[in-house]
Write a protein that binds this DNA or RNA. Structure first.
Lengths: 102, 102
DNA sequence: TCAACTTGCTTACTTTTCGTAACTAGATGT
DNA sequence: ACATCTAGTTACGAAAAGTAAGCAAGTTGA
């Protein structure tokens, strides 16, 4: 990698959001808190990748994880303030896709 | 891959925009038409990937390519209407990154 | 008692994509 | 003939993604 002329914050943001599935996972979570299996069913992403992405997003403070020790165990993921702040961007992409994707 | 519950248009959009470098390349082109080497210098992307991405974007009608047969040859890439329509989304991500990325 | 089920993952393995660097094509200039 | 410039392409090892099977913990059913 060579040095970049672009803003490092945007570069960092795109390093996160540009990863496969990440934005669709966040889009899914805009609907509200959701369980692992719910997200997995809603998107064509495998458990392996979903687990990986959710960990990354948790580490970045975009998503939080809450465990309910029920039977069987229930784990819910939801957006933090930082995550919810992405709604504008995600909605813009959604709008664009409605207008421009055949 | 299994079937997805989410809107196929958004899925398609994210398949494009979610690829590494794609959004940063478009961000760069928001500045105006640019040559291959200009984009390559502005971003930490290699010629190999830049070439690949620009072809994809051209195929999707998001970017256009114009060759000037000068000495040496000059090739400029610029956003189509479809590409420019992404400005809102890209600016939202930019704003988010300014507010939320350390 | 104990096999079976459920959720939320993890591991193992294959295929695809990426990153780095070297190389090519076409049109000059020296 | 040889070096130079832009705009790529090619080759190849490394990293990431896709697929499928396995696992732990608690509970239910026989």
């Amino acid at each position: 990698m060579k040095e970049s002329a672009i803003c490092p914050r945007l570069a960092k943001a795109m390093e996160l959001l540009g990863k496969r599935w990440t934005t669709l996972i966040l889009y899914q979570l805009l609907e509200g808190p959701q369980r692992f299996n719910e997200i997995e069913s809603a998107l064509p992403v495998s458990g392996r990748l979903l687990s990986e992405r959710l960990k990354e997003l948790e580490k970045e403070g975009i998503v939080e994880r809450k465990v309910y020790t029920e039977v069987p165990v229930r784990v819910e993921y939801f957006l933090t303030d930082k995550g919810n702040a992405l709604e504008g961007a995600i909605r813009e992409v959604e709008k664009w896709s409605q207008c421009w994707i055949k």
